[in-house]
Design a protein around this nucleic acid. Structure first.
Lengths: 241, 241
DNA sequence: CGCTGCGTTGAGACTACTCAATATCCGTGG
DNA sequence: CCACGGATATTGAGTAGTCTCAACGCAGCG
């Protein structure tokens, strides 16, 4: 299960994962877990000794300020490691919470250490996935710093569209986004009221049909133009080794 | 040279770097380079096959939108890898430019691949440095998304103060920041005019003495309070292996 | 059936932006 | 040594994007 998800996410970079590496991943899973919605899987400042991969469901990374202001820093879906960075870092600098009920696979750090000793190539792939998170993070920073709120929302949708398609969770025309407008606001770095206004604007511009969690993309090209979207950061190209 | 810089940056996490690993790092350097100020060391979309570590000088990562808006995503000084992420990723999703003249050490990807094959522990340390960049990145996102511009500037100063102290480039009371207000604006995600106003505000509040590139910290506690600064994300604690 | 959380909408306030003018610094050349 | 040009710093005024406050509607749920 786990291997298929990871392989799907990485196939564009590394089409064939050697059998022994596939087995190594599978063996590194100590157990599976079901986590209810709106629960923290790990909290900032925690010292952790295992990593979690989402098999199904949605989660988000977020940071908070002492006075309560909150910023969501990433959205994660099936196939994503939510805290692989904790393997080298150990200490969490942010929290990860579920947005929906999540099924997760648990990888003890010890098993990952073993992988780094025996499978250099696989190690580089795991490293790669943490770096992909970072490229997305940089785009979010660019968005929050330099895009207007509407553009930012458009860009988020473009990103999710691609990422969901890669793992087969969207047909490119519709996505299911289990976020309240308050959570969306925390992801965009705006107030809840403004998040709503910005959603309305995309609706009014006839770019999307947004009803609750279901979002129909009416004009993907228009959305990408508005967002000034450039997908290269998602590292979808196949490269020679 | 290179090893000392890296060791200094990592000593809090891993106090003793085995001799053979130190040699491996030293051997991985193919050559040194001097880069003039205000020049791109690597550009977005580049396909690269070597990584660069700053020995001396300042550089920044930045991303741009097609219409020219620019966001600086990280500031780098001596001891920082500016594009280690390009080792697993290959393709650059952003650019790296010098702020001052820089002396850099060059690591061919092939040499790094060799390290991942022979030194799992060192590999995890290299992985770690890319993840430290990511924790800083997350703080910047939190800043840009949820802190007012003054708080954001204060937070940036607190961060730089700590980072410079770790590598011995600041005594904790003064830092040299080779940024124009335009570049500072791009780092904070505000307009140049507002960047200036925000610098003035820190001056007026008697928190700093800001003259050109030289910044004297008059009230570090006040600065940290204003920024709601929490240094744990910089991973300065020593942890049991 | 009333509570509670979320979505929606309006109004006024505030942070930050743009435009624009002036001042200062610094390297270059006369 | 000083005049000049260009880039940067500084300041003011008006505007625009976004925020806060607040009210109301709606749906789910015990």
């Amino acid at each position: 299960v786990v291997t298929d998800l990871l392989a799907r996410r990485l196939r564009l970079r590394d089409p064939v994962l050697p059998l022994e590496e596939r087995e190594a991943i599978e063996d590194a899973v100590s157990h599976y877990l079901d986590v209810p919605p709106d629960v923290d899987m790990v909290s900032a400042h925690d010292l952790v000794d295992e990593c979690k991969l989402i098999v199904e469901g949605w989660a988000c990374r977020y940071g908070t300020l002492p006075d309560g202001r909150r910023q969501i820093m990433a959205l994660h879906m099936g196939g994503d490691f939510v805290d692989l960075q904790s393997f080298p870092l150990k200490r969490m600098d942010h929290s990860v919470g579920t947005l929906t009920r999540c099924r997760v696979a648990v990888f003890p750090h010890a098993a990952l250490t073993d992988i780094t000793r025996r499978f250099p190539h696989l190690t580089r792939l795991l490293w790669l996935t943490t770096l992909l998170d970072a490229t997305i993070l940089r785009q979010w920073l660019l968005s929050v710093g330099r895009r207007w709120a509407v553009e930012r929302l458009a860009h988020l949708l473009c990103e999710l569209l691609v990422r969901l398609q890669v793992v087969g969770l969207s047909n490119g025309k519709t996505i299911t986004l289990p976020l309240t407008q308050i959570e969306l606001a925390d992801a965009l770095g705006v107030s809840p009221v403004h998040a709503h206004r910005v959603v309305s604007e995309l609706r009014d511009r006839k770019l999307v049909l947004w009803r609750g969690q279901r979002i129909d993309i009416l004009d993907r090209a228009g959305l990408e133009a508005l967002a000034q979207f450039d997908a290269t950061y998602l590292a979808l190209e196949s490269l020679p080794r």
